[in-house]
């Protein structure tokens, strides 16, 4: 299901979380990058039909999310993994999924059970099906979270910071799992970790202050830092007038890499930027604009 958003605004009292956002997502696995507070969660809650927009239009698969029928039509084909999803501590993984399946309208008991079995297998929780959720680790809980999102074979899967707080190995496993389910559906993955998007999505949107500041191939983000990424070896404090991306202390001094529209120091040499530096350049351009 494709997503078409124009002029989307959402305010909370005086706080503007989404500020006239435009975004078109065609399908497949799509990244949504942005720092904390950029508005990713708010956007995803709007897409999940949880929050009504203050203004603007949101269409998912042609359905208008601001109408009741449109919202229900989308919710029937939606898989949503909210940020910080909690679970009922006194249910087992099997029971929790069964409950969510019922609430999603999967009324055929045999089909529901079969699907739950397949999903638990896919997320590697087969051995823990009968255990109470209260004893699950963070990674296991996240896997239950993605399993519930995938119940009912949704056409749109919205996952909000699913890798936050996972150890590196688990994070890699989790994002690979997400990429593997993207065939034939739209998967919108929000994260503040550039690497998650770089390893799984061809295209991404970057959000800052409630707007989309970049939308396109992930590789193009690197271009934003070309010609403005510098390396500099120095003693003493980092040079002023730029955003320091890395600082590695070696025997000959501290190796700084920084993003700066102008040469920050006569000794600085231009270098080929990384994706992260492209992202920093993007964010920085937004701030000074």
């Amino acid at each position: 299901m494709d997503i078409q958003i124009t002029g989307l605004r959402r305010t909370f009292g005086k706080v503007t979380a989404l500020d006239g956002l435009d975004l078109a997502v065609p399908g497949g696995m799509y990244g949504l990058l942005g720092t904390n507070g950029a508005g990713k969660t708010t956007l995803m809650r709007v897409l999940a039909g949880v929050l009504p927009p203050t203004a603007g239009t949101v269409r998912v698969g042609g359905h208008d999310l601001t109408t009741r029928t449109g919202r229900l039509a989308v919710q029937r084909r939606l898989g949503y993994l909210p940020q910080d999803l909690g679970l009922y501590p006194d249910l087992s993984a099997q029971e929790f999924l069964d409950y969510v399946g019922l609430l999603k309208g999967l009324d055929d008991t045999a089909a529901r059970r079969r699907q739950i079995g397949e999903l638990l297998d896919m997320v590697g929780l087969t051995d823990a099906v009968g255990r109470k959720l209260r004893g699950f680790s963070g990674g296991m809980r996240r896997r239950v979270g993605i399993a519930q999102a995938l119940l009912g074979d949704p056409a749109l899967v919205v996952v909000d910071e699913p890798t936050a707080g996972l150890d590196p190995e688990e994070r890699i496993r989790f994002r690979t799992l997400l990429a593997s389910i993207a065939a034939g559906r739209t998967v919108l993955l929000s994260t503040h970790i550039v690497e998650d998007v770089a390893q799984t999505c061809r295209d991404t949107a970057v959000m800052a202050r409630g707007r989309v500041v970049f939308n396109g191939p992930v590789a193009d983000i690197v271009q934003r830092a070309e010609g403005i990424t510098w390396e500099l070896v120095g003693q003493g404090p980092p040079p002023a007038g730029g955003v320091v991306v890395s600082a590695v202390s070696r025997s000959d001094g501290t190796h700084y890499r920084l993003v700066s529209p102008t040469r920050p120091d006569p000794r600085a040499v231009p270098v080929q930027p990384s994706l992260e530096e492209g992202y920093v350049a993007l964010m920085h351009a937004g701030t000074s604009a």
Binding site: A48, Y80, P82, L85, G86, V100
Partner: peptide
């Protein structure tokens, strides 16, 4: 409190 409100609101129930 348990962090299930958003999920429940997103379901077609």
């Amino acid at each position: 409190r348990l962090g299930l409100a958003s999920l429940l609101e997103s379901l077609p129930t």
